[in-house]
């Protein structure tokens, strides 16, 4: 083997390996971005960041029936032995012209029981505004057992100038809620 002349077979082997490694690099670059949806899935399973992601329409429809008088079977599903304290917390990041407050500050509900929490958003400016509420729940795992059937946070809300709107969030707590969760906080940040 003379100086620097790398044999053809070695050259081929090198090229093959370089290609594989470049592919691995590309895959890992993609993986970096795949971490974004993976993170959401991960949070959904573990309640990592206390955000409630589930919003599927099937559930919503099923729950809309729940608002109607409960059937016996459904009533059986309420765990009256426990009552959970829920605190509502609001944060407005939408500027000084938007006031955001909970009407029902604290609720006590049984797991399985359908409940409503009402919020008030006031726009004191002369312009109509679009706002979006971002939910966050603490402790994070509790979010896994909170099922919202309707929420103003599902989409942007339009508020006319100088108007006060009331919004409702309908939800129930899963009866599987762990025994050690006695209290939870629902926070909405308005942007």
């Amino acid at each position: 083997m003379s100086q620097r002349s790398v044999s053809a077979t070695q050259q081929q082997a090198n090229t093959r390996l370089v290609k594989r490694l470049l592919l691995a690099t590309a895959i890992m670059f993609g993986f970096g971005f795949a971490l974004v949806p993976l993170y959401d899935v991960f949070c959904d399973i573990t309640g990592l960041n206390g955000r409630v992601y589930q919003k599927d329409t099937q559930q919503t429809q099923a729950a809309q029936n729940l608002v109607a008088p409960l059937t016996e079977a459904e009533q059986d599903n309420i765990d009256v032995t426990r009552s959970i304290k829920l605190e509502m917390m609001t944060i407005s990041q939408a500027g000084g012209a938007i006031l955001f407050e909970p009407i029902d500050k604290t609720l006590r509900i049984h797991p399985g029981q359908m409940a409503e929490a009402r919020f008030r958003i006031t726009n004191v400016s002369k312009d109509a505004k679009y706002v979006q509420a971002i939910p966050s729940i603490s402790p994070g795992q509790a979010g896994l057992y909170l099922h919202k059937t309707a929420c103003f946070c599902f989409e942007q809300q339009h508020i006319e100038a100088n108007q006060q709107n009331e919004f409702v969030m309908q939800f129930y707590l899963d009866t599987d809620l762990p025994e050690d969760i006695l209290q939870m906080t629902l926070a909405y940040t308005l942007y």
Partner: peptide, 12 residues
Amino acid sequence: VKKDANPGFINE
């Protein structure tokens, strides 16, 4: 007690 204050989220 040391806990991060994250914008848009609550921690306890």
